[in-house]
Design a protein around this nucleic acid. Structure first.
Lengths: 338, 338
DNA sequence: CTGAAAGCGCTAACAC
DNA sequence: GTGTTAGCGCTTTCAG
């Protein structure tokens, strides 16, 4: 493989000039530039980013850490990140880790001197946050708190809208399939919002209305299924069920229907994420969508050090589909009977 | 960030000894090793892989290139690759590219000096294959042919099994939703097999029985939908439809049912890949599964330079679910009537 | 505008 | 067992 020295020799310049041509920084006479460019093309020279990163202490790599990969939502996130990262010359390395697995993966990330880390999994232990900052990596969603850059994901409006719809349609007993184990709660305001708005509408949420599970140790679909099965066994009433994400909702629906329940007639179901397949299901799954593209863009811009402090509040949107057509609203009844 | 020199100083040894401790290669007195280890732990030293890669000319990075990322199948592949890669200390970078986008991405891959490239997209132009070999990267599925390592994916048994089932159930007009554009045909033996076995059973396949589309320019789900819509418009008969992958099948089913068709009563549908959601759908989607785990393992072992030449033939398996319960077999009829 | 020197953090190769 | 020397391919810095 031809290196910079070789290109320089062939072009009759010093290697420094080649660097300037390649990087586009610094002054190079137009004539020289063309000569060098020609040699680069002829030889097919491709710079070694490893070496350049070593000396410049800059990295073109961004790491993304997700807790599981069987959930298509993360695909959307990864896809958006790849696309946005590319615009700034970054490439994306994907890691899967959760809980105890974090330190090992973080050491890997650090030893590879990334420019930034976007975390969708458990919070980072303090020492790793410190080290990442030392190597100059930008941290995103590294902890539950507000110590690093993190946009606000406003779920409240969407949740209120969804609950209003369900209550209007006559749902009284509304449950939340949270599915999570203890420390996995990065960035999660969904459950508190749910409780708050239910209370505001005069429906106090009791602890058993929030169904737990082993997410992300077990995959979301399985967690949803198991929640439905437990609920069926208990014989508890459920007019509507909010699930932490779409995959859980899909799992829930699957098991729920096997148990002889109809959706949305007996029970309305909705999720979060708006995965591509949500609308492919029968009934089409109602969900809460966030703007994954914008999220990814803001993250990458933060890492790249560009991007003015524009509006970093991502408003989630409720998307009503058939799975939440529980009962009938007064209007629809009128029409149907009229 | 503390570096190797600093660790060496604190432990009262030379930096070379630290290297030996860290890498576990070469002789170090047990006593020295412990002393160095202690300093490493106290200082939280994490080696710089960038530097080590530069001099050792070894990389711990593997690239995977996929044509699209809205298809959960690639998630399974990526997940399996991450898991297997980790066993050998590799980390995975994910790239999305297709057709014209390949050169740009390949230059990125080359400039980052990866240890290997696993390609699920368009074949590599010759010059990039050459360069990748020069930097010592292992190529997997880089071309349609047999010039590099590639396991055999035996679809034939599974396809035969599926077709036999469909024919036995009385399907006569069987179509294939291929969905692909011209040059995207890496590793694709599915369509030829289909034609071959149909012919063997006395059902010659004509050109219009193979439905095209714009995959992967448009996503698989959309391609499946559009194929169904075209078919509905044409009014052509279709007792059974094989789709190139599960997402296409899901898209096909979605549009097909909107057109008033029942699955599997009017038309049997099946896909390939066995994505997690295939069995969550109603009707559960029949599909052809390959052993993604084993595939990933073989790839990584090849890159790592281990792994004896074991059986590299991956036999795909037909998984019959409800979506292919077209008509009734003689047996079932007997039972139903009996 | 261009080049020479120094060195990023690490390891290969050899010496002791 | 351990240290020394050289240098990976590139950029930074400063001199011209």
């Amino acid at each position: 493989m031809v290196d910079r020295e070789e290109v320089a020799r062939l072009a009759g310049v010093s290697s420094m000039t080649v660097t300037r041509v390649v990087s586009g920084k610094g002054y190079v006479a137009e004539k020289t530039r063309r000569r060098v460019q020609k040699v680069i093309e002829e030889t097919g020279y491709i710079p070694n980013r490893i070496a350049s990163g070593l000396v410049s202490r800059k990295s073109n790599r961004v790491a993304i850490i997700v807790p599981e990969l069987s959930n298509p939502y993360y695909l959307q996130v990864v896809e958006a990140m790849i696309r946005e990262a590319k615009k700034y010359g970054y490439i994306l390395s994907v890691f899967k880790a959760y809980g105890d697995e974090m330190p090992e993966v973080l050491e890997e990330v650090i030893s590879n001197r990334v420019a930034g880390v976007v975390n969708y999994s458990s919070p980072f232990p303090e020492r790793y946050k410190k080290m990442l900052k030392e190597i100059g990596a930008k941290l995103i969603r590294a902890d539950d708190g507000e110590t690093d850059f993190r946009m606000t994901l406003s779920y409240d409006g969407a949740i209120r809208e969804a609950l209003d719809l369900l209550l209007r349609r006559g749902a009284e007993k509304i449950l939340f399939v949270a599915g999570v184990t203890g420390d996995f709660a990065v960035n999660d305001r969904r459950i508190p919002y749910f409780c708050k708005y239910m209370a505001e509408r005069g429906h106090a949420v009791s602890e058993e209305d929030i169904l737990g599970g082993e997410y992300p140790i077990r995959d979301a679909f399985a967690v949803g299924q198991s929640a439905a099965e437990r609920l069926l066994k208990s014989g508890r009433r459920a007019d509507a069920v909010l699930c932490l994400n779409d995959m859980m909702a899909l799992g829930f629906m699957h098991a729920w229907r096997r148990g002889g329940k109809r959706i949305p007639e007996d029970t309305a179901v909705m999720g979060f994420d708006n995965i591509r397949l949500a609308e492919a299901f029968d009934p089409e799954l109602s969900t809460v969508a966030t703007d994954t593209e914008k999220e990814a863009r803001l993250y990458v811009e933060y890492i790249a050090g560009v991007g003015a402090e524009e509006d970093t509040d991502l408003h989630a949107k409720f998307i009503a589909r058939r799975s939440t057509q529980y009962g009938q609203s007064a209007d629809e009844k009128g029409k149907a009977e009229g």
